[in-house]
């Protein structure tokens, strides 16, 4: 029997991922702004899914208030550019700023557990929405548009936004991969399974949770900032809206909670669903909610979990695989 992290498939796939990122980086040379705009939306969804998965699937923190950080990220871009900072530098700074804001918030909401934590984060998001709505200097309830990126020609701007989004997505996915593979990843799963037991064997519970909350805030802030750069306009009701959480929960649950690959799969599915049904008003949100309920109740391991069960594959080796002689023979 042996413990292993990398399998032949996961080595191959990790290499292939690097190849995919290179190919994605070349997309603006081949396709027009419409394609890159759509793909940027997809990157935002992938970031959001990965961040919510790190929170709920690894740290057991069911936040339904991550739209707080999405909104903070978007509005921070406006505030930074108002102070003369370059638009794309502002996007990166906004993500970091969002992380900074998450630290004092964590002091408050970490006093709550489980379902109370969930609504507590939602209250925080509502507070930020109301504060922004009441602040006329950043557009109040009607929102603002981002003018700082108008210094670039539209086609160039879309390509730059795309590259920034791709870079941020790659960096965030890499960061969460490294984080979840580290000792902290194991600590987090122990917390998710039984917080008290984890604490009793010396897992630094509070620190581990705070690190994930910080990462998720940076990620969601980046998603909001990229959305701002991609759409160039924002209203508090949409950017601080609860529908973001509905998307995140749908993607992560359908893909597979607590797996690294599943949420990416979920993001691809949601992206497809949005392209197909976004015109049909709220009915598609009804569908998303219904699927989330159904997956929770009857299919809790999600699509990726089902694939892992069926074929025993792991593309991105976050966990440890215990291999016996029997399974080794059957795989080779």
């Amino acid at each position: 029997m042996s413990v292993q992290r990398w399998t032949r498939v996961s080595l191959l796939f990790s290499g292939a991922t690097a190849g995919i990122v290179v190919i994605l980086a070349l997309v603006p040379f081949w396709f027009g702004p419409n394609t890159t705009e759509k793909l940027t939306e997809l990157f935002v969804l992938i970031i959001l899914a990965a961040m919510w998965n790190a929170l709920a699937g690894y740290a057991g923190l069911v936040s339904i208030g991550q739209q707080a950080f999405i909104g903070i990220g978007a509005y921070a871009v406006i505030v930074f550019t108002d102070h003369g900072i370059n638009g794309y530098v502002a996007v990166v700074l906004a993500a970091l700023f969002s992380g900074l804001i998450s630290l004092p918030i964590s002091l408050l909401v970490f006093r709550l557990r489980g379902g109370q934590f969930a609504i507590g984060t939602w209250v925080v998001a509502e507070i930020f929405r109301l504060l922004v709505t009441n602040d006329q200097s950043i557009g109040g309830g009607t929102g603002r548009s981002l003018d700082a990126l108008n210094i670039y020609a539209p086609a160039d701007r879309q390509a730059y936004t795309y590259w920034v989004a791709l870079a941020l997505m790659t960096a965030l996915m890499l960061a969460s991969f490294v984080l979840l593979r580290s000792r902290l990843g194991g600590a987090l799963q122990a917390i998710r399974d039984d917080e008290r037991a984890a604490e009793s064997v010396g897992v630094p519970v509070a620190r581990a949770k705070r690190i994930v909350f910080l990462l998720a805030a940076v990620g969601c802030g980046a998603a909001g900032a990229i959305t701002m750069a991609n759409t160039l306009t924002v209203t508090p009701d949409s950017i601080f809206g609860i529908q973001w959480t509905a998307y995140m929960i749908f993607m992560v649950l359908l893909g597979g909670l607590g797996t690294f690959e599943g949420p990416v799969l979920g993001a691809l599915v949601l992206f497809g669903v949005q392209q197909e049904f976004q015109g049909s008003g709220s009915w598609y949100l009804v569908g998303l909610g219904a699927v989330a309920i159904a997956v929770t109740l009857v299919f809790p391991r999600g699509l990726w979990g089902a694939l892992v069960d069926r074929f025993n594959i792991r593309l991105m080796p976050v966990g440890h695989t215990l291999r016996t002689l029997v399974s080794r023979r059957s795989e080779s």
């Binding site: 959480t245 008003g281 998303l288 699927v291 109740l297």
Partner: peptide
Amino acid sequence: ELSPLLATFGLSVVIGNMLLE
């Protein structure tokens, strides 16, 4: 612990958007 939260959130999304439609 997570399932009731996720299921009731899904229910909230379903009811809210159905009312809207």
